[in-house]
């Protein structure tokens, strides 16, 4: 017994009441699993709305069905869809559109979901230099005026997200940021 290093004993394994020994999923709200194929079909429906000029309908559709229960692939697909919608809406339309969503039933929740996509999913994604994403031309028609390589493409997407973030905080308040940080249902 003398040469046992007490500090390396995993005491949690020996204690039946230890927090390491219970199912952590009971602490989180339940989410229904979503298949990646469903996310993709939703994405194509939303793209159709977008092509038809119905920006608000597209955004609403994307925010009302967040794939919290999907795997990483499904979440990636939906993130790309939301970013695409955000980039196709002009800056002057942002505030009135957010106002309309906020005052409609279920609106505050939809804006909380939007906040999740802007900060910190969207910003987190564009800041990690993802070469394949930055080299492809932006589908929004943003002209690449800075021919300085990959990081600038991320900067473009970031500026769109930042202006959305500003408009969104004006309407949904700091409460929505706190909710994003608190919420265990990640998008």
């Amino acid at each position: 017994m003398a040469n046992v290093n007490w500090r390396t004993i995993n005491i949690d394994a020996l204690d039946p009441d230890s927090p390491a020994n219970f199912d952590l999923s009971t602490l989180a709200p339940s989410v229904t699993p979503v298949a990646t194929a469903d996310v993709q079909s939703l994405a194509s429906q939303i793209r159709q709305l977008l092509r038809g000029g119905d920006n608000e309908g597209a955004l609403r559709g994307a925010l009302e069905n967040p794939p919290c229960g999907a795997d990483d692939k499904g979440k990636e697909v939906h993130l790309a869809t939301v970013i695409e919608i955000l980039q196709s809406i002009r800056q002057s339309e942002m505030s009135p559109l957010l106002n309309r969503i906020y005052s409609s039933p279920g609106g505050p929740e939809a804006l909380d979901v939007l906040m999740k996509y802007i900060s910190y999913k969207g910003m987190g994604q564009t800041s990690t230099s993802n070469p394949t994403r930055n080299i492809t031309p932006q589908p929004t028609g943003f002209s690449q005026i800075h021919p300085r390589g990959a990081t600038e493409g991320g900067g473009q997407a970031m500026s769109v997200l930042l202006s959305w973030h500003e408009k969104l905080v004006e309407i949904a308040g700091p409460g929505s940021i706190v909710r994003v940080m608190t919420d265990r249902r990640t998008v």
Binding site: L27, A28, P29, E109, R179, T182, D183, R184, R185
Partner: peptide, 8 residues
């Protein structure tokens, strides 16, 4: 009772 986000 658990609220929607399970915040503490």
């Amino acid at each position: 009772f658990l609220n929607n986000t399970a915040g503490w």
